[in-house]
């Protein structure tokens, strides 16, 4: 099955889930007015189902995303897995920031990302993990008088 066919079916499934489960549960039913709360979401979910099915039907065998556009071919599945890992690390860092505070978590987050991508030079690690968060703290908390996450 080609990537286009898979994504087409996923888009159609997303529209289907929205139509059947999400919209009835998350949108209030109103019986008057020209554009009711559910009108646009329902129409758009139905459009997604239709477009997803059309894409799945028209997908050519062997067709894939264009690597020049940053498609999956650009680095392959390994790059996708690494990007997912970095996103998970960032999410964990943001969660920790809310509990422990920016000052402690930001250097650790930057350091973790640098180590994961293979950076080992001490001076660059110091710049990114100490100088950058330090300057952000100075500008935001001291100069602008605003709070940072967890502050």
């Amino acid at each position: 099955m080609t990537l286009d066919r898979v994504t087409g079916l996923l888009v159609a499934a997303l529209g289907g889930v929205l139509l059947v489960a999400v919209i009835p549960d998350q949108v209030e039913t109103v019986d008057y007015g020209w554009v009711r709360p559910g009108t646009l979401p329902t129409v758009l979910a139905a459009v997604l189902v239709a477009l997803g099915l059309v894409q799945a039907a028209l997908a050519r065998r062997g067709a894939a995303a264009d690597p020049d556009d940053g498609g999956v071919g650009d680095g392959g599945i390994g790059a996708v897995a690494r990007a997912a890992l970095y996103l998970a690390v960032a999410a964990l860092g943001v969660w920790a920031m809310g509990r422990i505070g920016f000052v402690w978590v930001a250097p650790a987050l930057v350091l973790a990302l640098m180590l994961l991508v293979g950076e080992r030079r001490p001076h660059w690690m110091a710049v990114a993990a100490i100088v950058v968060p330090g300057v952000i703290w100075l500008v935001v908390e001291v100069l602008l008088g605003r709070t940072l996450p967890g502050g």
Binding site: L44, L51, Q55
Partner: peptide
């Protein structure tokens, strides 16, 4: 088809929040 799906998805995300005519929360 993909362009129209991206536009529909963008519009759908824009419907999150209070609806403009009745002021009821959605999604």
């Amino acid at each position: 088809v993909k362009g129209l799906a991206a536009a529909a998805l963008g519009l759908l995300c824009a419907t999150v929040g209070l609806d403009p005519e009745h002021g009821t929360p959605r999604l």
